[in-house]
Design a protein around this nucleic acid. Structure first.
Lengths: 225, 225
DNA sequence: ATTACTAGTAGACGAGTAA
DNA sequence: TTTACTCGTCTACTAGTAA
């Protein structure tokens, strides 16, 4: 991603091209970008080529709109700014409860993992994880979380099989202590895996499709805790 | 402000150079900016020249830090992203109550202004304005407000003197209806001028130095209201 | 008005290298 | 190791202009 593309996309978004088509001439965009009409025209062609923009080239004036990919690029930059200016001690994630493959539960209950949860998070998880599919808006917050230290859960070998490393972060769901676990090699990055001392679905009376908020603690870890 | 400067400042901020000096070699910055060590070195010199950066050039490795001006430039971009992604119907401003020059009161009480307040905001302000000096963090939010329509208060002439145009936005302070008034040609942009039907200091028992929150309404204006 | 081609050029970049 | 100079290349820009 070239920075100049992000810059142009940002200005187009500010002109209203984020949710709807907006009529922006190459001259107007040139003014916004402080460049010539010709260069702005070229920039638009490049953005179309990169699939960051779609265009409806009418007779008089073109109408343009960011694509999903274009919005995603902007969101990346937005998240960088949030890391810079909103550095707080917690992040709130929202998502919908879903049923996973049951793998989470199998992994979690391995003794070496359990022992580490006990020593690092101060509780032994109930066998099983609660899977939460994050809303699109909160997906970017995962990057913020990943950039913070968290509790490292070491991997191990057993019966010739490898159990990978993971990182855990203390969290709260409806004021109940829990933790989110992020395997180092995860296929999903929009699924949050929660572990808790109790059976979350039963304790909180939640089911598939329910929307829940998870507050992830990002305060600096005290050494040896 | 060249976009490439903002890009470099952003990466430096992410590397930790926003509050403190941080050791970043020109090679490391080059990697972050996806450019050569030589170009990154040049970029740092340019940023120093523009006073966006200060440097402590030690024997082994330089230590750099953003200046106030540098942070301000980043905050501008951050505010652009907030306008894009956080488009909400209100903005909360915080600041400290201060005593102005008394000009506000003189202007406000002019009949042509008063009549417009009555017709556009549906109240006649108490004679006098409450001045609130905004916190640095919320200064950028003024840009967001300025970019929204608001109620236009027309200027007029009287006794050969010109009374300028202004824009008013409905607001609430401690749940009390009020409005902020932004003269088109204002010398201050960190001072909020509030008008209210009541005497705010007396009604809310506030005095100089008290910190107040003002919720500014940005919901789209209904036509003819 | 528009958009966007071609051609010429200024300036940004990296390689080589000094300190 | 650093930082940062010079210099040659090449890219990204604008002017002119067509459609």
């Amino acid at each position: 991603m070239d920075e100049k593309y992000a810059f142009a996309l940002r200005k187009i978004a500010l002109l209203g091209g984020i949710n709807n088509y907006v009529a922006v001439s190459s001259r107007e965009l040139g003014d916004a970008l402080d460049m010539s009409q010709q260069s702005a025209s070229k920039r638009i062609l490049e953005l179309l080529d990169e699939k960051y923009l779609v265009r409806d080239l009418g007779a008089r004036k073109q109408r343009i709109k960011l694509t999903e990919a274009g919005v995603d690029e902007l969101r990346k930059e937005y998240n960088e700014y949030r890391r810079i200016f909103e550095l707080t001690d917690h992040v709130t994630l929202r998502g919908k409860v879903v049923t996973g493959m049951g793998e989470g539960g199998y992994y979690i209950t391995q003794k070496p993992y359990m022992d580490q949860f006990q020593s690092k998070l101060n509780f032994r998880p109930f066998e099983g994880t609660l899977n939460v599919k994050l809303t699109k808006e909160d997906l970017g917050k995962m990057e913020i979380i990943k950039s913070m230290p968290g509790h490292t859960i070491d991997g191990f070998e057993k019966d010739g099989r490898t159990f990978g490393k993971a990182t855990a972060y203390k969290a709260k769901i409806q004021n109940l202590d829990c933790a989110i676990v992020m395997p180092e090699r995860s296929h999903y990055d929009d699924i949050l895996e929660l572990v808790c001392k109790y059976h979350l679905r039963r304790t909180l009376s939640i089911n598939d499709g329910d929307v829940v908020s998870v507050i992830v603690d990002l305060s600096p870890l005290s050494p040896e805790n």
